[in-house]
Design a binder for these strands. Structure first.
Length: 268
DNA sequence: ATGGTCGAATATCGA
């Protein structure tokens, strides 16, 4: 079994204790982080090394920043996604672990000014091309903070929020394209309906009132989705002292050896 | 319609 998680931590330096606690209590083999908000020279890699994890990170001062924390070796670490997608800000990190090519993304929020929304749509268009470039038999995971709630069950009030940032038809259309092209939204594979959120605004007691959005997604290629065993949102972490506004999302996959046995049994 | 709460960096901006 291989466990992979994604978490927008809203500053790795503010959330270091939370990340170590999550690693200890939930045991992911690989954890993808977004919004680390730290340049590479100040990334707290030693704290993870002391606990037996290897790290890869791509950060910048003040904003953005992505990282991967792993028990397993991280190979072919790159700031480029399959098909050649790159981005001028530090929003992309890609590596192979346990034979799975894993793309970690922090999609622009797109909420502050006019051209930032256009840039968000361009980022989502590029992700669509990334997925199209991946062969169906390649185990590939595209995960992170997409800043898009794909469906009505992914927001607390779809009527009120329709057309607003993170629940705008143009954003949902683009995520919908990825899903209809064959990418599998792992959380919805195991929880096809029902309200579910991974982010709650710090303001207006949103978490206490459970008014949130499901913005953190794990999209699996068909080959990897076939090996998925579970996918959960770890709401508990949003209750910890001084939390991130996002909760981790954790998925489990059969190891290649397990799935090979399954295929043999099915073809017998 | 506005502001509400965080984080980085120290006045505001981004989310």
């Amino acid at each position: 079994m291989i466990r992979v998680a994604t978490w927008n931590v809203n500053s790795i330096r503010q959330r270091l204790d939370h990340v170590l606690r999550f690693l200890g209590e939930w045991g992911p083999d690989i954890l993808l982080l977004q919004e680390t908000k730290v340049e590479d020279g100040l990334f707290p890699g030693a704290a993870f090394a002391e606990n037996g994890y290897t790290t890869a990170f791509s950060g910048q001062k003040t904003w953005n920043g992505v990282a991967m924390i792993s028990k397993l070796p991280l190979e072919e670490i790159s700031e480029e996604l399959p098909g050649g997608m790159r981005w001028p800000e530090k929003r992309i990190l890609c590596a192979t672990a346990a034979g799975i090519r894993i793309g970690n993304v922090y999609v622009p929020n797109g909420g502050s000014s006019g051209d930032s929304f256009a840039s968000k749509l361009a980022f989502l268009d590029s992700l669509d091309r990334v997925l199209a470039s991946v062969p169906a038999d390649m185990p590939f995971l595209l995960a992170g903070d997409f800043n898009v709630a794909p469906a009505e069950d992914d927001v607390h009030d779809p009527e009120a929020l329709d057309g607003s940032v993170c629940f705008h038809p143009e954003e949902r259309l683009r995520v919908g394209r990825m899903l209809s092209a064959g990418a599998v939204d792992l959380f919805r594979r195991f929880h096809p309906s029902g309200k579910a959120y991974s982010w709650w605004d710090y303001r207006e007691l949103s978490f206490q009132r459970n008014r949130g959005m499901r913005l953190d997604l794990m999209l699996a290629s068909p080959a990897l989705a076939a090996r998925a065993e579970s996918c959960e949102i770890v709401r508990e972490a949003r209750k910890w002292q001084k939390p991130s506004d996002h909760a981790p999302v954790l998925a489990a996959f059969e190891s290649v050896e397990q799935s090979a046995v399954l295929v043999l049994e099915q073809t017998r």
